[in-house]
Each structure stands twice: as structure tokens, then as C-alpha cells.
Amino acid sequence: MSLTTEQVRHVAHLARLGLDEVQIDSLSTQLGDILGLVDALSKADTASVTPMAHPLDMGQRGRPDVVTESDRREAYQAIAPSAQDGLYRVPRVIE
């Protein structure tokens, strides 16, 4: 697939890129090669391929879901500037 220089100018304008004629000619060829590769990849038969999240058959190491710290809410609220009914009180910020 090839791109015309006018298409490259249009994309460069949309991307707010200031390109000279040499860069436009070079990018026209390079972008055409990239689009050709994407076109070739889109023709690959993937009907029998199972979708996967990772190419390796691995799982995440898990750890047991256990409580490792004790509840220290009273201790933390005792040193808080203001607490009431188990909640922290903060200054009003919205009028």
C-alpha cells in the first residue's frame, strides 16, 4: 500500500508537523511500508487462535487473603485533629 505525498502532507498538517519536501518523500515511503505490513497482518487467518492475555502459560503467584495488621482506628483517631463517631472531621472546603 502506498501513500501519496498529498496524503502525507494532510496527515502532517493534522499532526501539526512542519515537514519539508525531502521528509515528505521519505515518510511517504516509510508509512507506505508500515501500512503494507499492517495489511499483510490483517490477512492472517486467526480464526483458530484462542485469545490470550499473555503468550506464556503462566499464572500470578497468589498469597492467602489474611489480615496481617490489627484494627488501630481508635489509636489513629486519638491523635487526629478532629474525629467524631468513628469518622475524621475535616474543614469545609465547598461553600
Rank of each mutant, 00 (worst) to 15 (best):
D20G: 07
S48G: 10
V49N: 00
D25M: 07
E21R: 08
E21F: 01
G32M: 02
I24N: 01
L37C: 11
L31P: 15
D39I: 00
V22I: 14
S26H: 14
L37Y: 03
L41M: 09
S28Y: 14
D20W: 03
L17C: 10
D39C: 02
D39M: 06
G32T: 01
K43I: 12
G18Q: 15
V38K: 02
T46E: 01
Q23T: 08
Q23M: 12
D33L: 09
L31H: 12
L37M: 09
D20S: 08
L27I: 02
D33N: 08
D20R: 10
S28R: 08
D39S: 03
L31K: 01
L27D: 05
D20T: 03
L17A: 13
L37Q: 11
A44F: 06
D45V: 04
G18D: 12
I24K: 02
L37D: 10
T46L: 07
D45K: 00
S26V: 12
D39R: 01
E21D: 11
V22S: 15
D33H: 08
L41R: 09
L35P: 09
G36T: 01
T46I: 15
L41Y: 07
V49R: 04
K43N: 08
D25G: 06
L37W: 05
A40N: 13
V49Y: 00
A40M: 12
S26Q: 11
L27A: 02
E21C: 07
L41H: 07
S26R: 13
I34N: 06
K43Y: 11
L27G: 03
L27W: 15
V49Q: 07
I34Y: 07
L31D: 10
T46N: 06
Q30I: 15
G36M: 01
L41W: 07
I24F: 12
S28T: 01
V22P: 13
L35F: 10
S28L: 01
S42D: 02
D45C: 00
A40E: 14
V38A: 07
Q23H: 11
E21M: 10
I34S: 04
Q30R: 14
V49H: 00
D33W: 10
A44C: 12
T29F: 10
V22W: 14
D45A: 02
D45F: 00
T29R: 09
D20K: 09
L41P: 05
T29M: 06
S26Y: 15
I24M: 03
L37F: 03
G32C: 06
S28H: 11
V38Y: 07
Q23Y: 04
L19I: 00
L19R: 09
S28V: 00
L31M: 12
L37I: 10
